[in-house]
């Protein structure tokens, strides 16, 4: 991959030029799906865009010292990490990539939630700190399953390179891994029933409580980009390998849309679970599932 293609991937497709409108679109789909499930009409199509522009025009509270500097930095780090994760997705066939880019993608996907934890604690608000503590506990619970699912997929197909994973025919092991990833997505995207860290009714949106104006706009954008990156990862692993580039892009976007719709419907149909129930769910039910996947993947690898 030379510099031009790398830049084109980061800035145009599937990078920023595609990802930012896609992020707003997915945020709209999320709200619209919830509204339709509740029998409402819901927000207009351009709503997340209007929200973003309006937030850019609001003022921010004065912040001083290192704490203030950090509070300004966290949303920017989160946005750049999520945008980088989207840029790594191998949507177009033979678009490059390097050995081990799956690991970098996972690290970049994890960075926004780290930023949320840090932002809640640096805001010094009691609600922010509770939200951050919950986010930390949740992240420990689902990440074990999430990482084991990725490891089982990579082990069964002998590669950590996204491009080759997308090109290889899917094995039954991979479908098991994709299913485990899908179970983790609601927690990763803070959706019901695992929306404890930003619970609107109990802790006033948690770590975001002290953020306002352009900083809040960056958080909204990073949340949208996380949607694109996380659903894009699952779409990459689940999509069939197509060499015609426009068809590949179309299938990719269609799959992402389907996942967003399914997750939003699940979010509107369920209520928020308590933290102990959430942790128990991930540790007891899904961990067994993920450990099975990894052990059978390793077994298959030893046998072959």
């Amino acid at each position: 991959m030379n510099l031009t293609t790398a830049l084109a991937r980061l800035l145009i497709f599937p990078g920023l030029l595609f990802a930012v409108p896609a992020a707003w679109f997915f945020l709209w789909v999320e709200r619209k799906a919830v509204a339709l499930m509740q029998g409402r009409v819901g927000p207009p199509f351009m709503q997340p865009f209007f929200d973003f522009i309006k937030l850019l025009g609001k003022s921010t509270p004065p912040r001083s010292g290192v704490g203030g500097l950090l509070m300004r930095a966290w949303p920017l780090i989160a946005v750049s990490a999520a945008a980088g994760a989207v840029g790594l997705l191998p949507v177009l066939p033979s678009s490059g990539g390097f050995e081990g880019d799956l690991i970098l993608l996972l690290a970049l996907l994890e960075l926004p939630s780290m930023c949320i934890i840090a932002a809640g604690f640096s805001s010094r608000s009691i609600f922010g700190e509770i939200g951050s503590a919950r986010e930390a506990v949740l992240s420990v619970a689902y990440n074990v399953v999430f990482l084991l699912a990725i490891v089982s997929i990579a082990a069964s197909q002998h590669t950590f390179r996204l491009e080759s994973l997308a090109a290889l025919p899917a094995s039954p092991m991979r479908w098991l891994g994709v299913l485990a990833l899908l179970v983790c997505l609601p927690a990763k995207l803070h959706l019901n029933p695992f929306s404890l860290p930003n619970a609107e009714q109990e802790i006033y949106s948690g770590p975001m409580v002290e953020y306002a104006g352009p900083e809040l706009a960056m958080w909204e954008l990073s949340h949208g980009l996380e949607w694109v990156a996380a659903t894009g990862l699952v779409a990459t692993l689940a999509a069939p390998y197509i060499t015609i580039w426009w068809l590949a892009a179309l299938v990719f976007v269609g799959l992402m849309f389907a996942i967003v719709l399914a997750l939003s419907t699940l979010a509107s149909a369920t209520a928020r679970l308590a933290i102990d129930t959430t942790v128990r769910f991930y540790w007891q039910c899904t961990l067994i599932f993920a450990v099975l996947a990894v052990s059978s993947a390793l077994f298959m690898r030893l046998r072959s």
Binding site: A35, V41, G42, Q47, D51, I203, S205, M208, L216
Partner: peptide
């Protein structure tokens, strides 16, 4: 609520005064 649905106008009820207009 569904009968009046103010979200059609972009209205959102926020928990924090920092987010509100």
């Amino acid at each position: 609520t569904p009968r009046y649905d103010a979200e059609q106008l972009g209205v959102r009820l926020e928990g924090s005064p920092r987010h509100a207009d």
